[in-house]
Write a protein that binds this DNA or RNA. Sequence first.
DNA 1: GTCTATAATTCGATAGAC
DNA 2: GTCTATCGAATTATAGAC
Lengths: 188, 188
Amino acid sequence: MNKAERQTKSDRTRAAIIAAAQAVFAAHGYERATVRDIAVRAAIDPAMIIRYFGSKDELFTRLAVFDLKLPDLSAVDSNQIGEALVRHFLSQWEDGANSGLTILLRSAASNEYAAEKLRAVFVEQVMPGIASVGGRAGAAERAGLVSSQLLGLALCRYVLKLPPLVTMHRESIIKQVGKTIQRYVTGR
Amino acid sequence: MNKAERQTKSDRTRAAIIAAAQAVFAAHGYERATVRDIAVRAAIDPAMIIRYFGSKDELFTRLAVFDLKLPDLSAVDSNQIGEALVRHFLSQWEDGANSGLTILLRSAASNEYAAEKLRAVFVEQVMPGIASVGGRAGAAERAGLVSSQLLGLALCRYVLKLPPLVTMHRESIIKQVGKTIQRYVTGR
DNA sequence: GTCTATAATTCGATAGAC
DNA sequence: GTCTATCGAATTATAGAC
């Protein structure tokens, strides 16, 4: 067995741990997720997780990241910014490869590290995007209002699973919530 | 010492446990709150908590209740319903005696019992109130949208403590979010 | 690289003295 | 009614055999 093959096997184990940890953290949040749960799901030994990632905390830190991937809003038709933002947000949320937001939101209510990470996402990603459209004046407040609606939507639809929001059609949500975001961003 | 005095002392201990438990559950959520933490804050022995309430679960169940105390919306000026709802919601949230909502929201993301309780609040308190105003048609969806904005607001302002929403003046929030709720409830 | 065995904590809960 | 002492279970993390 040469070095490349050993690396391949090691990488497979590492990938299995990451995939399992994403699923378990996203399903139960930081506190409820256990190293053993993750190990069972990855079909490996719990000790391997510590060996590969050092600790549960380090593993969580590695997965509790989120890139909103906001498009350049100044290039969007200014009457469509609300709907475009909601559509983009829902897509990012439902993108399985971007599970960081689910993990963060599930954990943030009872985990200060996750809460701080969410605040950082707001300051570094949401605020600048909003400011680039409606100007600097009151950008922080407008971004805050936008975040309250979008995070609330995600909380109700994906975490709490509030019946009407779970079953509500994607396009209906985009239309209704889009109007709200449009007003928060542009004032109209 | 007569019976009334013994009861008084017992009641004081019980009240101290409840007050401490509300504070700790509201601050850290169900998973992170420990019986020992509550005992320290109440300045009593941990064993007393079990003796008085049976288990941590039973104590939590007793505190994880929330009465939104929605006013009769059909009596409110139909153009003022949005602002009235936001104002009422913020007041209820900031009412120290009504800590159930904080406790529920802090716990619901990683605790299925708390999530179920929040869904029940929605079905039993929010839905009927919304339906009493805009009529039955689409009442569930409209109530869902209202909940997403109000819970998102509470999440950002009181739990995540997102800077702009924490410092934002109460009346500004009522005005801005009020317009959103108004449209969700009445369609205009 | 992997797993067995176990250390070291922490937690909820109980038993029993006072 | 209250507290001391402790149990038993669950958890993260480590040591070391294979």
